[in-house]
């Protein structure tokens, strides 16, 4: 069996007195789509944000345990979190383009990391837009404000923006929950393509969607990771009764 891209060991997270994650351990395969499912408030989004340390900005948060990315503990004291977030990109629930041009949105990340050359940036922008399957729609209006795009286009732009810093892992927090069905379909198709190059972890409340896009899945309930494994197994023959109830409830 191949070595996992990310492995989580005994992860605990609490806000003040509230425990949001309870002793979570799991393995996430490289170049695959892993879906995190569970009822709202179960901790799946919180878990996702632990993988690029976005929870660091939440006030009063305490995290224990380890998350290994290619064998390095991202919660180690020596870690440069900006480099971590460059390697582990993120797409949010609400499309959140910067109020700038489409081009500047994509070039933002590379510029942060010191790339200034016009030609190099042009290349990266084109590559990223193509990677997010939005190049054809935007190539004639790169200088126009990104806020003029539709919601679905904005979300794919945000995916392109995340790709532009050439990450290894892409975290997606309910990326289609604010989108219409047609845009959702496009983003799902994109996710299936992305796994060729990237490790994708996606949080979704929509189980059909999870079933459509994922290779692996993990079920969260009340801060615990109940069960994880290949998606088809988890959805058709779950081992744990709680997973079975949840899956059955959702499908039935």
């Amino acid at each position: 069996m191949e070595r996992s891209k990310i492995s989580v060991r005994n992860l605990e997270l609490s806000y003040g007195a509230a425990r949001a994650l309870k002793n979570v351990s799991m393995e996430i395969r490289g170049c695959a789509v892993t879906a995190l499912i569970g009822p709202s408030g179960c901790g799946k989004s919180t878990f996702l944000k632990c993988i690029n340390r976005m929870n660091d900005f939440v006030e009063g948060v305490r995290i224990r345990g380890s998350v290994f990315l290619d064998g390095e503990d991202i919660y180690d004291r020596r870690v440069d979190t900006t480099l971590l977030r460059k390697k582990v990109g993120m797409v949010f629930q609400q499309p959140n383009p910067f109020p700038m041009s489409i081009y500047d949105n994509i070039a933002y990340g590379p510029r942060l990391h010191g790339i200034r050359g016009r030609q190099e940036l042009d290349g990266i922008v084109e590559e990223a837009l193509k990677g997010a399957a939005i190049f054809e729609e935007t190539k004639d209006r790169l200088k126009k404000s990104a806020l003029g795009l539709s919601g679905g286009q904005q979300q794919r732009l945000c995916i392109a923006r995340a790709l532009a810093v050439r990450p290894e892992v892409l975290l997606m927090d309910e990326p289609t929950s604010a989108l219409d069905p047609v845009s959702t379909r496009k983003v799902e198709e994109l996710i299936r393509n992305l796994k060729k190059k990237y490790t994708v972890v996606i949080v979704t409340h929509n189980m059909q969607q999870a079933a459509r896009v994922c290779d692996d899945a993990a079920f969260f309930l009340a801060g615990e990771m109940v069960e994880s494994g290949p998606g088809d197994v988890l959805f058709s023959r779950p081992k744990d009764r709680r997973t079975r109830d949840y899956v059955a409830g959702r499908f039935g």
Partner: peptide
């Protein structure tokens, strides 16, 4: 806007 920039490694 803040979240997006931080998540890009800013």
């Amino acid at each position: 806007v803040r979240a997006a920039s931080l998540a890009l490694g800013g």
